[in-house]
Nucleic acid binder design. Structure first.
Length: 173
DNA sequence: GTAATGATAGCCT
DNA sequence: GGCTATCATTACT
């Protein structure tokens, strides 16, 4: 009986902060500043760091984020691309028809499909090794290899250089 | 270039 | 309640 473990190395992210309009939490900002509880989908972004925030985008794709700020302050990091490391055969089964291994998780929607990340993980901790978790990198990435640039696919708060990726990595478009 | 597909927000009555 | 625009994308022509 083979392991069902899948491991992928994150190679592209985007940061979102609750006080800028591209962030889902922005619609709750005024409420929270008045001392009211956040509500709706993005209330989770005001929760404690280390939780998963998974939401449906364009009615088609689940997108995977990590809540990053202390409770009461909204912020998250969108995980946009990852490089398959092990359990690749499982990812292939979840991404039928994809030949190139580097294309299995080379986008935020592709990544959630390849790793079977769906709404069941919304609000769950990523800090305990159960079903879905974040692990420290085996090899530390030198800051010089991390390229910062403008976020993609958004219409508000453009220009902030809050997209981060490994320079020239094949999983990054 | 563009269809697919559904949740959400903001507006209206 | 309803209506409409928008949307952190992908795969296909």
């Amino acid at each position: 009986m083979g392991s069902r473990l899948m491991v992928a190395r994150i190679v592209e992210t985007e940061a979102y902060r609750g006080d800028e309009p591209a962030c889902h939490a922005f619609v709750n900002l005024a409420r929270v500043q008045r001392g009211l509880a956040p509500r709706g989908r993005s209330a989770l972004l005001f929760d404690e760091p280390g939780l998963a925030y998974v939401y449906l985008n364009y009615g088609v794709h689940w997108l995977f984020n990590v809540v990053t700020e202390r409770a009461g302050v909204a912020g998250a990091v969108l995980v946009r691309a990852a490089e398959p490391q092990s359990g690749v055969e499982h990812m292939r089964r979840l991404r039928p028809g994809i030949e190139d291994e580097q294309d299995l998780a080379s986008g935020p929607g592709k990544l959630t499909r390849a790793l079977d990340i769906g709404p069941r993980f919304n609000g769950r901790s990523l800090c305990v090794a159960r079903e879905l978790w974040l692990a420290a990198p085996q090899v530390r990435v030198p800051p010089r290899q991390i390229e910062a640039g403008p976020r993609v696919g958004i219409s508000k708060a453009q220009g902030l250089p809050w997209r981060f990726c490994l320079r020239g990595h094949p999983c990054v478009s």
